[in-house]
């Protein structure tokens, strides 16, 4: 039992890590009252940005590159939605298509037909001294990459920031009522710019983590719907930091399950396992329909574009 369970849980945490980055980024964006459905395009940009920057300056540079690529994509979104007052749904869709198309083209342009060099820097799991020798918990939680450990620190920090700082309060207020935020003298545009850029950087980190901590290389379309899953995770997590992190774990588990079931030799077409996380998305979203806990401004399409 343990022989299966530990690899499964380990894989759950590992696959949940990039999802959590993207979802927490989307969470911050949505709490400011803007939905960025272009997360998919941001993640794939983060993948390529991470690959290119890591090739030039090592793994640490790769994460920086991924975050910058993601923030750059988000800046395009913010410019269109906040400055030009374009429709956020259309802009987000365009951003996804742009990201998928542009990364494919750039990748082929940069690396030719033979693909990226196999020597892409990557980061290996680090067993934390002491903690990693705990039974079950050790190999699952404390034998991960640095990005997972960073997430352990980031989640409480974000929760604290949202609840206990004036800036966090301001961000939530902008997401709940633009009019009330304006009346309180808040700079709605600036807060939303910040939230969108932050979400982009987090999405970029998700992409860089995929490349540098999991897959080890870039393939076209490797984001594989994670941007949309991240949006679903935020809904499932009820727009809360801890809830969203837990929801990311559930989806990490769904991805890990496909490895587990395939390893267990179930004689089912593997496409079915691949479809599992997406099927889960549909089922959970349908089960959770209705309850209104979303930031109120998300419902008011018009307000996204107003100053």
């Amino acid at each position: 039992m343990e022989a299966l369970l530990i690899p499964f849980l380990d894989a759950t945490i590992r696959t949940a890590t990039p999802l959590a980055y993207a979802a927490l980024g989307e969470l911050v964006t949505e709490r400011s009252g803007v939905i960025n459905i272009g997360m998919e395009g941001i993640i794939i940009a983060g993948c390529l940005g991470g690959l290119v920057a890591a090739g030039a300056g090592g793994a640490a540079m790769g994460f920086l590159g991924g975050a910058l690529a993601g923030a750059g994509m988000a800046a395009i979104f913010a410019f269109f939605v906040l400055r030009l007052r374009a429709d956020a749904i259309i802009t987000g869709t365009a951003l996804t298509l742009l990201g998928l198309g542009l990364t494919g083209t750039l990748y082929r342009g940069l690396f030719g037909l033979e693909g990226a060099a196999l020597g892409t820097p990557s980061i290996a799991p680090i067993a934390l001294p002491g903690l990693s020798s705990l039974p079950l918990v050790g190999p699952v939680f404390f034998t991960q990459t640095g990005m997972t450990y960073l997430l352990y620190l980031f989640v409480p920090a974000l929760a604290w920031w949202l609840a206990r700082t004036q800036a966090g309060l301001a961000l939530r207020a902008v997401g709940e009522s633009r009019a009330a935020a304006l009346a309180a003298g808040l700079d709605v545009q600036r807060l939303r710019w910040g939230a969108i850029l932050f979400g982009g950087a987090m999405g970029g980190l998700c992409g860089a983590t995929l490349v540098l901590a999991q897959v080890g290389t870039f393939t076209e379309g490797m984001s594989a719907g994670r941007g949309f899953i991240a949006i679903a995770i935020v809904v499932l997590g009820r727009w809360r930091t801890v809830g969203t992190t837990l929801a990311a774990l559930i989806f990490g588990g769904a991805f890990a399950l496909q490895y587990l079931l395939q390893a267990a030799g179930w004689a089912l077409p593997y496409h079915l396992f691949l479809a599992l996380p997406y099927l889960l998305t549909l089922i959970l979203l349908a089960a959770l329909r209705g309850r209104a806990e979303a930031p109120a401004e998300l419902a008011s399409q018009e307000s996204w574009s107003r100053a």
Binding site: T165, Q166, A173, E176, S177, A180, L182, A184, A296
Partner: peptide, 19 residues
């Protein structure tokens, strides 16, 4: 100009700085 989902305290604190 109040935010229904927030508490009275949060509504009144809105617009300040720092912690």
């Amino acid at each position: 100009m109040l935010i229904p989902a927030m508490t009275v305290t949060e509504n009144i604190a809105l617009g300040g700085r720092g912690r």
